[in-house]
Design a protein around this nucleic acid. Structure first.
Lengths: 116, 116
DNA sequence: GGGCATACATAACTGTCTTATGTATGACGA
DNA sequence: TCGTCATACATAAGACAGTTATGTATGCCC
């Protein structure tokens, strides 16, 4: 709903980027736009988080990058998932879902008697 | 499952503590044990994360603490939710659920055509 | 020409986690 | 009695990944 911009939890950006890139190569600005749009304007990726994250992913071998000139004549660094990166994407998504499930267990848990 | 211990995402511990304390006062060690048990041994809260977190919550006025001597004769610092803390717990849980929902939107999103 | 969206980059700062270490007590068995 | 384990708290050092702020530059459109 975009009433208040949501703060990214540290460690959760990479999976968003990987997931975005699984639809095809894209440059940083487009990745950021896609995440914002698909989140319904709730998530705004700051550039100070995005570009370092892309470097990280490239260092890990999960994405490759190349400079490309668009039809408009503008240059952009285009990122693409590697095979390793595609596997990483799957396992990162799974890890997130696992985290959510574990969290739900704790949040929904009910004590029998005192917890102390 | 507990095959590999899950790494806490930064910023997600507070809500677990608050949620735990909503069942009644408890000391640090008991909070840690409760989170581990209710998560099915998946979450192990490190002491280096737990005790600073409890201090933070107390500084914010979300919990109060007092030293107590158990029947065993051992001393422990017992934490208790304040009224503010109870409200904070509710809004933190809501914020987490909102985060999960937004994330799901991005992870499940499908592009029409290219995203670039 | 001016303003806006696009496009990338980095430095400084901050917060919260992990890892490692230290202290101390009570219970239990060899 | 002595060792070991579970209990119970605390803090320092370090890493990591966000935020905030700032800078550069181009293309499009009025």
């Amino acid at each position: 709903m975009a009433d208040s911009p949501i703060r990214l939890l540290k460690g959760t950006l990479d999976v968003l980027i990987l997931r975005t890139l699984c639809w095809g190569p894209a440059h940083g600005y487009a990745i950021s736009r896609w995440i914002r749009q698909s989140s319904g304007d709730d998530l705004q990726i700051e550039e100070g988080a995005l570009y370092p994250a892309l470097r990280r992913l490239e260092e890990r071998g999960w994405v490759t990058s190349r400079w490309e000139t668009a039809d408009s004549g503008r240059e952009a660094r285009v990122y693409e998932l590697t095979t390793t990166g595609r596997n990483a994407m799957r396992s990162e998504v799974a890890a997130w879902q696992r985290y959510v499930a574990v969290f739900a267990r704790v949040l929904d848990a009910r004590p029998r008697g005192s917890i102390a």
